[in-house]
């Protein structure tokens, strides 16, 4: 049975001029009439509220539509990398509660952060965190499934984008030349 609740997510894109006269038309004609187009912090954001069979169907069909409009997808949000504040917001818990999980004061084996670890504001992988919270009955399974979709999409974008950026391909080749084991990986 088709879910009538819209699935909400955003694609950050490049390759389109938000001030061009046909900016909106090309997205509308590509099927993005269930999206809201915006420019924030200098980045074009295509925010969808798409009704579909599943979150995955909504995300993949929207990705296809955005490409059909002639845009290049740079990133998907909600991101899978989250700060403590973001964890609290998504789980509808207080920051204090999350701090207690992180420190081990409450709960056991809360996932470790995966990025910016040596900084004042580390980031966690929402796939791991939502799974932990699901096991303690605090977020629905759906949240975990959607987290994985976010990580897959951004992982793919990061992988294909980074390798293509100017200079990165050359650097990667040099690394592989000096480290044969890396080339085999």
């Amino acid at each position: 049975m088709k879910r009538m609740t819209p699935n909400s997510f955003t694609f950050l894109v490049s390759g389109v001029d938000p001030m061009a006269d046909d900016f909106e038309d090309r997205f509308f004609e590509a099927g993005c009439d269930d999206a809201t187009l915006a420019l924030m912090n200098g980045v074009v954001a295509i925010g969808f509220d798409r009704v579909a069979e599943s979150y995955m169907h909504a995300v993949f069909s929207a990705y296809r539509d955005v490409l059909a409009a002639g845009a290049t997808v740079e990133r998907f949000e909600p991101d899978f990398l989250v700060s403590k504040a973001e964890i609290a917001k998504r789980a509808n818990l207080t920051r204090a509660a999350i701090s207690q999980y992180v420190s081990g004061e409450r709960g056991r084996d809360f996932p470790k952060p995966v990025a910016r670890i040596t900084s004042a504001s580390p980031l966690w992988d929402w796939v791991d965190v939502s799974a932990w919270l699901h096991r303690t009955g605090q977020v629905p399974l759906e949240e975990v499934i959607n987290a994985r979709i976010s990580r897959v999409v951004n992982g793919y974008l990061q992988g294909s984008r980074t390798a293509l950026k100017t200079g990165d391909g050359l650097l990667l080749r040099k690394m592989k030349q000096s480290m044969p084991k890396l080339a085999a990986a």
Binding site: L39, G42, D49
Partner: peptide, 21 residues
């Protein structure tokens, strides 16, 4: 140029969702 912009549709698929967005 670093200010925000939002585009409003004449006929979005779902006007209420568009308004909320």
């Amino acid at each position: 140029s670093s200010g925000c912009m939002a585009s409003v549709w004449c006929t979005p698929k779902n006007p209420q969702n568009h308004a909320k967005a």
